[in-house]
Amino acid sequence: MNTYKVQKRDMETKAKKLRREGFVTGNLFGKEIRESIPLKIERKEAERLLRECMKGSQVLLDLEGTTYDVLVKEMDYNSMKNEIMEMDFQALVKGEKVHSVAEIVLHNKEMVGGGVVDQLLTEIAYKAEPSALVEKVIVDCSTLKLGDTLKVADLDIAKDKNIDITTHMDAPVVSVIVPRNAEIPEDTEEEAAE
Rank of each mutant, 00 (worst) to 15 (best):
L18R: 03
P38S: 06
C53L: 00
L39K: 02
I33M: 10
M54I: 07
P38H: 08
G26W: 06
L28W: 04
C53Y: 01
L50I: 01
E42W: 03
L18Q: 05
N27T: 13
T25I: 13
L49E: 00
E45Y: 05
R34L: 14
F23R: 05
E52G: 00
P38E: 10
E52Q: 06
R51C: 03
G30F: 00
F23P: 11
G30A: 09
K16H: 13
L39D: 02
S57T: 04
E35C: 07
R20T: 13
E21T: 06
L49P: 02
A15M: 12
A15H: 12
A15C: 12
E52V: 01
K16Y: 14
K55S: 05
S36C: 12
R43S: 01
K17L: 14
E21G: 02
K17S: 15
I37C: 06
R34F: 13
M54G: 10
L28Q: 10
R19A: 12
C53V: 01
E21A: 14
L49A: 05
I37E: 05
E47A: 06
G22S: 11
E42F: 03
L39N: 01
K40S: 07
V24I: 13
R34H: 13
F29A: 13
I41A: 09
L39A: 04
F23L: 08
G26S: 06
K44C: 07
R20K: 15
R20L: 13
R34W: 04
K17V: 15
T25A: 10
L50H: 08
A46H: 03
E32W: 00
K44D: 15
I41D: 04
G26P: 08
A46C: 01
E32S: 09
I37T: 09
R19F: 09
I37A: 00
I33K: 09
G56W: 00
T25P: 04
A15P: 15
K55H: 08
K31A: 12
A15G: 12
E52D: 11
L39R: 01
A46Y: 03
S57C: 00
E35A: 13
R43M: 08
K31Y: 13
V24P: 05
G56S: 01
E45T: 14
K44S: 14
E21S: 14
K31V: 13
I33A: 11
L18S: 09
T25S: 10
E52F: 00
L28P: 08
E42S: 01
G56Y: 01
E45N: 07
T25G: 04
F29V: 03
S57L: 02
G22I: 05
G26K: 07
L28N: 10
L39V: 00
F29S: 14
F29T: 12
K31C: 04
F23C: 08
E47D: 15
E32H: 06
I33F: 07
R34S: 14
E52W: 01
A46N: 02
N27Y: 10
